[in-house]
Design a protein around this nucleic acid. Sequence first.
DNA 1: CGATTCCTTGAAGGTTGTCAACGTTGGTGG
DNA 2: CCACCAACGTTGACAACCTTCAAGGAATCG
Lengths: 221, 221
Amino acid sequence: MTQSVGLNRELTLGQRKLRAKFENASPQFRKAGELLPGGQIYHLQTGWACQFGSLSNGSRAIVDVFLPGDMIGLDSALHTERPEGMVTLTAVTMRAIMAEDALLDLMAYRPAALYVAWVLGKRQQRADLRLAAISCLDASGRLAMMLLDFYTRLRRKELVTGSTYNLPLTQVQIGNYLGLTVVYINRVLRSLRESGIVNLEKHCVTILDLERLTRLAVTEE
Amino acid sequence: MTQSVGLNRELTLGQRKLRAKFENASPQFRKAGELLPGGQIYHLQTGWACQFGSLSNGSRAIVDVFLPGDMIGLDSALHTERPEGMVTLTAVTMRAIMAEDALLDLMAYRPAALYVAWVLGKRQQRADLRLAAISCLDASGRLAMMLLDFYTRLRRKELVTGSTYNLPLTQVQIGNYLGLTVVYINRVLRSLRESGIVNLEKHCVTILDLERLTRLAVTEE
DNA sequence: CGATTCCTTGAAGGTTGTCAACGTTGGTGG
DNA sequence: CCACCAACGTTGACAACCTTCAAGGAATCG
């Protein structure tokens, strides 16, 4: 079940097409904590953002985290009903295009349509993995998985080379992301630090023992 | 931000196109608990199925549940890497088409491409909602949310009219779906029954107090 | 009717949440 | 420069939620 070369070629063509649409938009700057208006597709160029799902209750969870280079808002474009919000986590620079216009144009070109579906599927994969993790793993496992996820994604984008990277989330936000409370996040972080597995302070993650961290993310023993 | 009529028209056109592709496939029958081969797109016509995400650990969680009428496997079509599996929960009848061939054909037709994106987004919405629920709600809240979700989806498909429906999941499977253990699922079910909110026995759900159930699903008080 | 799977219940213990307080940091204005 | 303020981080004690272990009952199927 290997991906055909023809498909891969079309995907890169589609990616190029989508990127080209963003070239025409002027870059925007936003401060940390700003809510991004719906109905638009964003290309995040610098900084982090997230999507949160809110219960009718009012309490909200962080449902996904976006890194520099990510495309955001493709999925909300066709579903105007639920007003799930996107928020910047840091100061960001990004470009925006109108979702519906862009989609109508993109979807007329098969490589772009395939690429859009690919991006949607990618986000779905992250959601599935996190659902499985939250269901199966305890606090330290989830934390390990999150730290590893960001680490590998940043490396793939070549934004990190060493074993240390910058994590702009506050501990409250980490809690909202993992379904845990701040207090407990803090305790687990301390235990991870004291075990010499990973260190997080001043928004700076240092992986001390990659092997043990990986083992944690997959349910310790 | 209302959805334009033109878009809606295209979506129904796309849906028709996709349905048409399935008409040419002969119906298949499978027993409960069978694993569905990847690389294909399925149209579930009768019975329930699910998708599970497995950790390298071996433990697996149920990540999404599919009801009669649902399209399955669209997202895994473009991502051959992670072999996440789909499994039937009951005996089913369904039609299958080859994922890659079908996608290459569908994506060349804009309405179909839009519809595919819409289906992908719909599944993503469910995942987001469940992530938020698992993060924010306790056991009874999650259970209430699940029971309500199936209830409303079945009603929308007009597979249920009264306040009672058939739930084929075993309690073990409900646990895997909600990230809880069987034992506790059982206790919470008993408490819900004794409170006169909802009754589940012999795979038959009876909603006794819809209002309180809804309030639970949204964090009690 | 045996055998398997599923459901059900009790008791004990661990993981996580809640409450409350204090330390730390960074920014703002006097 | 210092004082203040607000947001974030840190820690302890205790309670609640949920899991684990263990066992027995009910249902389904050969």
